[in-house]
Amino acid sequence: MSTSKNDAPGMKGNRARTEDGTLRQKRGDTHIGTIEKQYNINLNVRSDMHLSTYLEKNNIKSLNDLINDEKK
């Protein structure tokens, strides 16, 4: 079984690309607790909140923007 190299710097795990070559979006129904564990951040909200709800409430465009803002 061959392993594919992650081609996006700083991204954990392998993520598929869409037909136009962009990385696919993280599912909106992913729980915040999963994001906090995966990226070692604390967002100070309930862990069962959905990612899409958190992004909408905080006027954040994407998971990438969220991660980059938290690590600053």
Rank of each mutant, 00 (worst) to 15 (best):
M1W: 09
S2Q: 11
S2C: 08
S2F: 09
S2P: 10
S2H: 11
T3F: 12
T3S: 15
S4V: 11
S4Q: 10
S4N: 09
K5T: 13
K5A: 12
N6A: 10
N6K: 09
N6I: 10
N6Q: 13
D7L: 09
D7Y: 12
A8L: 01
A8W: 05
A8S: 02
G10V: 08
G10D: 10
M11C: 07
M11P: 01
K12T: 08
K12Y: 13
K12A: 07
K12M: 06
K12S: 07
G13R: 04
N14D: 11
A16V: 03
A16T: 00
R17G: 02
E19N: 12
G21F: 05
T22C: 01
T22W: 00
T22I: 00
L23P: 00
L23V: 05
L23N: 04
L23M: 05
L23F: 06
G28S: 09
D29C: 06
D29A: 08
D29V: 00
D29G: 03
D29W: 00
D29F: 04
D29R: 06
D29M: 04
T30Q: 04
H31R: 12
H31W: 08
H31Y: 14
H31L: 10
I32N: 01
I32Y: 03
I32Q: 05
G33V: 13
T34Q: 14
T34D: 15
T34C: 05
E36I: 02
E36G: 06
K37R: 14
K37M: 07
Q38V: 08
Q38T: 11
Q38F: 03
Q38W: 08
Y39M: 05
N40Q: 05
N40L: 03
I41Q: 02
I41Y: 01
I41A: 05
N42K: 13
N44P: 03
N44M: 10
V45R: 14
V45W: 08
V45K: 11
V45E: 15
R46D: 12
R46N: 12
S47V: 08
S47W: 07
S52Y: 04
S52P: 01
T53D: 15
T53P: 05
Y54A: 02
K57L: 14
K57W: 12
K57Y: 13
N58P: 03
N59G: 01
N59I: 00
N59Q: 04
K61L: 14
K61M: 14
S62W: 04
S62Y: 03
S62L: 04
L63F: 06
D65T: 10
D65Y: 07
D65G: 11
L66F: 07
I67P: 03
N68S: 12
N68I: 10
D69I: 02
E70C: 10
E70N: 12
K71M: 06
K72Y: 12
K72V: 06
K72C: 08
